[in-house]
Design a protein around this nucleic acid. Structure first.
Length: 387
DNA sequence: TCTGGGGTCCTAGGACCC
DNA sequence: TCTGGGGTCCTAGGACCC
């Protein structure tokens, strides 16, 4: 089954588009190149501000001074992406806009435009699969690519092919990306960050101690803020320090599964294949309100939003051809505490009214005295609809 | 004036069945 | 009268990722 010849090394690439949303926006607004720009905020308000700035002009001719600024925004929301110029000010993904406005009030604020990002996402992924067909989607702006059997994939450890992919994407779309090539996904993911933006990094097994072990544990994809804190509490900050711990010790502290995984990860071991296809497990829609709502006092408004979310999930299911039988809701209260309730029905559905009915039962099981800031509807246990 | 939206996977307890 | 085991499904919460 394998056509690997003697001496063929497993070479896996991780490709990450640089500041993807922001870079796509700069294609439309080249006059903003080099300036601090952030994408995010409540869609409607930011959209309107931009439309006012545009007036009757073509997009490329809106004067820089006319663009909406962070300091003029007063709604809730977070930054999804910031240009590198904005990152100089300490502004980046997931930062609240109000906090960001203090750090960089003059930054230009643009609304998210998912349709546009999806378009460019499909474009750069098509370029990749033309060159190297075994590609795994990791969201809108990232992929893994198996270079192992691709012509040129072994040359200079994958650098030649990485350069070709990177250059072709740039020539066709005008967008830059960063690529890491390594023996597996775990190391490739770390490598792609080494020379960001518009960089390439090549990692071999023998680079583990010199290039990987000095890194913070947090750089391992799968070790988040909580686990990182716990590790620090145990005196472990770097991957090298993690590698010094015994398997049993890690299992004692983190459980069988996580402990064993960490043990391997610290040694650069990762046998996960590059997966080209996957089935969705759930689909959901959620929304944070412009102001916190009360279940009784804002009943009508809440009801409309609830129904709309159910209709959106139903439309998503239908569009993609799936049915689900576990219907759930998610609430977030004004103190940011969240809760979920779900119920599995005995029939699979993609019908908005059915979803609304069951989601309504879920809502009844949740405490509703406190004001809400978010409501979500989820459908899980998906199966393909018969065509 | 903090803190989006769309996902995946894991854990853990209880129900229920053999 | 002591307390048996798996296995699977359901539910809730939490960590993590993009």
């Amino acid at each position: 089954m394998s056509t690997k010849s003697e001496g063929t090394l497993r070479r896996i690439a991780h490709l990450d588009m640089d500041a993807f949303y922001a870079s796509v926006e700069l294609l439309r607004y080249p006059q903003l190149k080099g300036l601090p720009v952030v994408i995010g905020g409540a869609r409607r308000e930011v959209d309107e501000a931009l439309r006012r700035a545009q007036g009757e002009r073509p997009l490329g001719q809106i004067p820089v001074d006319a663009f909406p600024r962070l300091k003029d925004y007063s709604g809730r929301g977070v930054i999804t992406t910031a240009t590198y110029a904005a990152r100089q000010f300490g502004v980046g993904s997931a930062l609240g806009l109000m906090k960001a406005a203090k750090l960089c009030p003059q930054a230009i604020l643009l609304p998210v435009d998912f349709a546009q990002y999806r378009h460019y996402s499909q474009a750069f992924k098509a370029i990749i699969t033309d060159i190297a067909p075994v590609m795994e989607n990791r969201g809108i702006d990232e992929v893994y690519i198996d270079f192992t059997l691709v012509p040129g994939g072994q040359r200079e450890g994958g650098r030649v092919l990485a350069r070709l992919v990177q250059k072709t994407i740039y020539d066709v779309t005008g967008l830059t990306c960063s690529v890491g090539v390594a023996p597996n996904k775990l190391l490739a993911k770390m490598a792609s960050e080494f020379n960001k933006p518009n960089g390439i990094a090549i990692v071999f097994e023998e680079d583990l101690q010199t290039n990987i072990w000095p890194l913070a544990c947090r750089k391992i994809n799968g070790i988040g803020p909580k686990t990182d804190e716990k590790l620090k509490g145990l005196g472990i900050s770097t991957i090298g320090e993690l590698a010094q711990r015994e398997l049993d010790w890690l299992i004692d502290h983190f459980g069988q599964k996580t402990g064993a995984w960490m043990f391997d990860a610290a040694r650069g071991i990762d046998n996960r294949p590059v997966t080209t296809e996957s089935e969705p497990v759930s689909m959901s829609r959620e929304t944070t309100f412009e102001r916190d709502l009360h279940a009784v006092r804002d009943k009508a408004e809440l009801g409309l939003i609830f129904t709309r979310l159910c209709e959106q999930v139903a439309a998503d299911l239908q569009r993609h051809g799936y049915l689900g039988k576990t219907i759930g809701i998610k609430l977030r209260y004004d103190d940011f505490k969240s809760l979920t309730r779900d119920q599995t029905s005995d029939v699979f559905t993609a019908d908005a009214r059915t979803i609304r009915k069951i989601a309504g039962l879920c809502l009844k099981r949740a405490p509703l005295e406190q004001r809400l800031r978010l409501l979500g509807v989820r459908v899980g246990s998906l199966v393909k609809a018969q065509p």
